[in-house]
Design a protein around this nucleic acid. Sequence first.
DNA 1: GTCTATATTACGATAGAC
DNA 2: GTCTATCGTAATATAGAC
Lengths: 226, 226
Amino acid sequence: MTEHLRGASPSSPDTIGAMPAASSASPAQPSARRDTYTPESLLTVAVRVFNERGYDGTSMEHLSKAAGISKSSIYHHVRGKEELLRRATGRALDGLFAILDEPEATRGRAVDRVEHVTRRTTEVLMAELPYVTLLLRVRGNTATERWALERRRDFDQRVVGLLKEAADDGDLRSDVDPRLATRLLFGMINSLVEWYRPDRAGTAHATGDEVADAVVATAFAGLRTT
Amino acid sequence: MTEHLRGASPSSPDTIGAMPAASSASPAQPSARRDTYTPESLLTVAVRVFNERGYDGTSMEHLSKAAGISKSSIYHHVRGKEELLRRATGRALDGLFAILDEPEATRGRAVDRVEHVTRRTTEVLMAELPYVTLLLRVRGNTATERWALERRRDFDQRVVGLLKEAADDGDLRSDVDPRLATRLLFGMINSLVEWYRPDRAGTAHATGDEVADAVVATAFAGLRTT
DNA sequence: GTCTATATTACGATAGAC
DNA sequence: GTCTATCGTAATATAGAC
């Protein structure tokens, strides 16, 4: 069992890409990091384990082994397991909501705004993959989980509004209700968390751009040739 | 806290619809049931709780409260939590694999076979909703979960084969790889477990038939009007 | 078949030394 | 900031009475 050594040390090379700049707010200074965990860098490890084992299936013991520090050391950085979940889902939700404020999502023909939101949601999902993955698996057992679920429902409702507009414009097929269409659309997009892996992109499967293109093309024009 | 009383008794009226016929194999005899649990009727309760709280988030205590019997009584019917998971996922997988043996899935033009499998998978998912829901959320922490994941991958691969055939026939859009198309297709279908509720069908959202129609139309022709 | 009581292990979190 | 040791609780599962 050498599992606890893999990617364990806070300064181990294979975690650099995922490591945030320490307390320094500037993202242009990734160098001056101390050889210790911050809540942010600990979150990176925790979210990975949460996604591997499931949130409920992950114990603090699992986290401590994965992070390479003791259980009690984790409590020095965060108040507990639930705070890690809140930070992770919050990050995912912030990324998603930001899409709705983009100019392309607020101006122009509704169906084009829907298409923009579709593409950008796919992109944000790929960019923030571990955080969105965790968000999409939340069940609602704790207050934090219910808070995340509620924010997610708000996001969905905003998009339903867009689909309704596009339907009123006559730009969406009339035999599918906008609410149902939104659910199928997000079903397709969100399923990326089940198989998309950035490290495999371009080899075992398509690159991020190709995936986004495929999602938009499939969702709006369908799989069948005409 | 009256939660443990809701739908608790094995013979309570609100569980009748979900209750299987006892040892009698004939489904035309729902009457002659004894006022006690069978592994099958216990499974109905357990799967509902698993889906509400997540498998890892469900303790035997939770199950005993929901079933209205003690923890130790559960062990009289099944060997443990994992056996319940295996029975549930096995049932879901059997339903899915049966689709691939249907005549419409083995004869005719590939693209039509894909469309048939799409519709039938949607229908089986709605008919066996709790079991398929549980299957789709399995993570792989135990041997049983890995067994279920492997069978599920087999099913996916069978469908990828169908999509490849259809693509070779020139019936599928050429700018989306068959493997990717299969993933997006199943992403859309499988997302039903997140929102489809049989009791709400026809009121809060579309009926089962309408949902199946919408899935097929969206997946093959797309959301946008042409 | 069901129960109460309990064995045993694992869990989240804390105390206090270094 | 990290550690070892430990507390109190909750988990899975079993023993044995009825």
